[in-house]
Design a protein around this nucleic acid. Structure first.
Lengths: 159, 159
DNA sequence: ACTATTATTGAAAATGGTTTTCATTATCAA
DNA sequence: TTGATAATGAAAACCATTTTCAATAATAGT
């Protein structure tokens, strides 16, 4: 569709090479797709998007790359209850979104990102994490907060 | 193994009949299995436990019952990253456990329940929920909080 | 640049937890 | 007891995700 510019060495270059991983074209394209969206893409979503600019990338590679990036902490894998994993770049690599959590509609599976109350949440979570790490000898790397319920649209449907 | 007593009308009786559902033996046995454990059982775990006292129950029925109970809000379905859903009776129906959240080891998938800081969490969550419901026209029914990291045992293994 | 090493890839096949299908059975209200 | 229909179980289907394996491409050392 549109010409892809890959001139600048991106932030992820050193992330990879430091650990003996290689920076390949499929990986770059996958990262670009993830960088350029605010949606919660599934592996197949990413696969289809990647194919537009690089038709030879296989779905397997997408899965493998996503797993690698998740292990590296570059992205998060979510389960919103629609039977497929969804991925989102970690906030530190996401341009637009800041720290946020999710509101998941259990009927239509729609996901709303919210940033309200995040500061207080963060504060409490950090305190909690410190306490838990000590008590359970557990090194906490990330947390997940989600609210489940019914969105306005779905509530109107049933009456 | 041990004789099963089903004499008393259980709390779930009215829960079912009120909605036009029927209380059947498989459902009772599944609920008993869930009531009698503090573990996070998978559908197959439950299936195997149920078979001990009622060998004719099929895995399909277990899945269907679990889905029904989850929809009813009687149990929660969790994803701890080991490729199968795990179930836990909602706190109001769980005898031993109170309100708690989970610490998930991303390596061995072990899950630790914790109850520390729950009160403060609860307070903040309730405030957050009220705010979010109003702002997003979203009726929140439940929340999920999980911490991910590495447990002590796993940390020692790699060094 | 050239090469050797080995990480990565892609196509196809396999996996395996979960759902569907459908004929049979069991529950509950009348 | 009976009729309506919710629930069941066995088998088959589903389908997102993994595995396999031979081919390819990225990096370090020269």
């Amino acid at each position: 569709m549109q010409k892809r510019c890959r001139q600048g060495q991106s932030w992820w270059q050193p992330k990879f090479q430091g650990r003996g991983y290689r920076m390949t074209v499929p990986r770059q394209v996958i990262l670009e797709v993830l960088s350029g969206t605010e949606k919660h893409l599934s592996a197949e979503d990413i696969y289809l998007a990647v194919q537009k600019s690089y038709p030879h990338v296989g779905l397997t590679t997408v899965y493998r790359t996503l797993e690698l990036l998740a292990d590296m902490g570059v992205l998060f894998k979510f389960d919103f209850g629609d039977r497929r994993a969804r991925y989102e770049l970690a906030e530190e690599f996401q341009v637009k979104k800041g720290h946020h959590h999710h509101l998941v509609c259990t009927r239509c599976k729609r996901v709303i990102d919210y940033t309200e109350f995040i500061d207080q949440e963060k504060e409490l979570l950090e305190k909690t994490e410190r306490g838990l790490m000590e008590k359970y000898d557990f090194s906490i790397e990330k947390h997940l907060i989600q609210f489940y319920g019914t969105c306005g649209k779905c509530r109107k449907k049933t009456v």
